[in-house]
Every structure is written in structure tokens, then in C-alpha cells.
């Protein structure tokens, strides 16, 4: 049957080719090209995502339901080994901590990046390109090296912590449970600082992109209408930069929530994040199903959070 269909199509095609004057055929060919081109161009991207995102995600989901062990091999037994998901409750503290730290570092990033992006977009003049390169420059060094550098910066005997001890800043922060009384390294604050530092460029760049597109005359107009600089910022600049804020917060929050390097190097056992748990479940305990279940729940939680966030913030102008 299929053979016949193919033959028929071949005949049709030959017919069209042998009658080039046939107006209908040429026309439909033209329309067809323009209609299918975008899809054709999308194919590589779709294939890429299907192969490296959808397939691994499905495998992750499957694996989280497997029974067995490395020695004996894994198998799927209907209805699946759902007990792996009980680990999610066991590690609820690490989940909560991950989202708390990611949220805090996103806020810090926003507070640091907004003035910086504003300055680069409006006030930097001929230095604009140089400053943008400087924002990206840390990426020329490995992520690991940059994080390790913080160990030196925040070392117990280092100038930063010595000063903070002298000024009793560490005591104050210790009251908030952010640091210990005599150190910053291996405390929650160190992890949040590390996350903030490592993901700052992801906040600066989208903010810059949306501020740079803004027409500065709008601020002038606001001032002509007797708005104070603060009101102009609040009512004109900030709303117009919102797409950048949304993009920046997403780009910061999502990787920060899954990060484990910062907690591993700058943290301590009491501030481990869910990324550390997943890493250890995979490599040290070699409990692949539990590790998969934790990864899957992490992904799902982030997806839900992002969904509600984006719905509230709106995506119309999101770049």
C-alpha cells in the first residue's frame, strides 16, 4: 500500500515538472516555500532541544522510578519505585535553603546591577563598550577559580574579615545568623555572596539591554512635568526596564537555585544546598533513582515558580 502511495506521489511530481507552464503548480510551490521555511529553520533548534533536553528529562523521570542498584542493574517494575520521592521530604531543608539563597542572591544582584546597568546605558559615554567588556571579563576565568578566589578574600586572617571583626560587623551579622561571630568564610553569607558574584553579569546584561533601548527624552518629559528624579525613576524608568528585570532575575535565580559549587567551597555542612545533595547521591552514595527524583522535583519546582512569576510579571515585552 505504501509503495503504491509513493509511486503515485512520484507520478504527480513528474507531472508537475513536465508541465512547468501550469500556473497553479508554480503558485502553490511559491506559497509552500514561504510557509515552510520558518519551520525548516527551526528544525535544528528543535532537534537539539529534543535530543539534549526532552530525551534526558524523560530519562531522568524514568530513572527516578527504577528499582535496583549499580551492581545488579536497574529495571522498571510497574507502577514504578515511587518511594524515591520520599527523599524529597527528607531533604526539605536543603530545598528550602536553595530557594532562599537563590532568592537572596537574586535580590543582591538586582540591587548591585541596576545602578551599574543604568550608569553604563546613560552616563558612560565613550566608555560604554569598555565597561560592558569589563562586566563580561570575569567569564574569561573558570567559574571554579573565581569561587576559590573568594576563599582567599574572606579568609579568617584576611584584611576583610579582620576589619569586619574589628568593627564588630561580624557580631552584628552573627545575630542575624548570617555569619559566625569570628568568621565569614563557611557561613550562609559567604555562599550568598559567592552566588551573587558569580551570577551578577547575568543580571547586568539584560538590564543594560532594556535600559539602553529606553528613550531618555521620556525622563526629560517627566521632569518637565515637575516630577522629582525619584518619581521619574519610579514611574518612568523602572516600568520601562521591567522586561530586563524579569529576564535578569530569571537568569540569576534559576542557575543559583541548582548551584552546588558555592555551597561546597564557601559553605559548610549546615548550609548545603539541594545541588550538593544531588551531586552526592549520584557520585558518592550512587543511588541514581533518588538523585534523579531530587533533580526532577527541583526542575519541576523551578518551573512552577517561574510560571507564576512570569504570569504575574507579564511576558509581552520580555526579550
Amino acid at each position: 500500500m505504501s509503495g503504491g502511495a509513493v509511486a503515485a506521489t512520484a507520478v504527480e511530481q513528474r507531472d508537475i515538472r513536465s508541465h512547468p507552464s501550469g500556473g497553479g503548480a508554480t503558485e502553490s510551490k511559491g506559497v509552500g516555500t514561504s510557509k515552510w521555511t520558518p519551520y525548516l529553520l527551526l528544525t535544528p533548534g528543535f532537534l537539539w532541544l529534543a535530543l539534549f533536553f526532552i530525551v534526558p528529562t524523560m530519562m531522568l523521570l524514568m530513572f527516578s522510578l527504577y528499582t535496583g542498584s549499580l551492581d545488579q542493574g536497574y529495571s522498571f517494575e510497574f507502577p514504578g519505585n515511587w518511594s524515591t520521592y520520599s527523599a524529597v521530604w527528607d531533604y526539605r531543608a536543603q530545598f528550602f535553603r536553595s530557594f532562599l539563597f537563590a532568592g537572596l542572591s537574586t535580590l543582591f544582584c538586582l540591587a548591585l546591577a541596576y545602578p551599574l546597568a543604568y550608569f553604563i546605558a546613560f552616563k558612560s559615554g565613550k566608555w560604554k563598550a569598555t565597561l560592558l567588556v569589563l562586566v563580561i571579563a570575569p567569564f574569561f576565568t573558570s567559574f571554579l577559580i573565581r569561587t576559590l578566589a573568594w576563599k582567599t578574600i574572606l579568609a579568617d586572617d584576611g584584611p576583610v574579615v579582620t576589619f569586619m571583626n574589628w568593627a564588630h560587623i561580624t557580631n552584628l551579622l552573627a545575630l542575624l545568623h548570617l555569619t559566625e561571630t569570628d568568621r565569614v568564610l563557611n557561613t550562609p553569607l559567604a555562599v550568598v555572596l559567592g552566588l551573587t558574584y558569580n551570577f551578577l553579569p547575568f543580571m547586568v546584561l539584560p538590564l543594560y539591554a532594556s535600559l539602553d533601548r529606553m528613550d531618555p527624552r521620556l525622563v526629560e518629559a517627566a521632569q518637565d512635568l515637575y516630577s522629582s528624579p525619584w518619581t521619574a525613576l519610579r514611574k518612568v524608568t523602572w516600568p520601562l526596564s521591567l522586561p530586563g528585570v524579569v529576564a535578569g532575575t530569571l537568569l540569576t535565580f534559576i542557575p543559583a537555585a541548582g548551584d552546588y559549587i558555592n555551597a561546597e567551597l564557601l559553605g559548610t555542612t549546615k548550609v548545603s544546598m539541594i545541588g550538593n545533595v544531588i551531586q552526592d547521591q549520584f557520585f558518592v552514595v550512587t543511588d541514581y533513582p533518588t538523585a534523579s527524583a531530587l533533580s526532577f522535583v527541583l526542575m519541576l519546582t523551578i518551573l512552577v515558580l517561574v510560571f507564576f512569576y512570569v504570569r504575574r510579571a507579564g511576558t509581552e515585552e520580555l526579550v
Binding site: Q281, V284, T286
Partner: peptide, 18 residues
Amino acid sequence: DEATEKTYAAAFNKVKGS
């Protein structure tokens, strides 16, 4: 053996917070 290894590693990692 494998099962014990896994149990012990998991117990140790609990202390480690992971």
C-alpha cells in the same frame, strides 16, 4: 557489600548535610 556501602555512605552524607 553494595547495600551496606550505600547505607553507610548515605548516613555519613546526612551529617554532611547532603
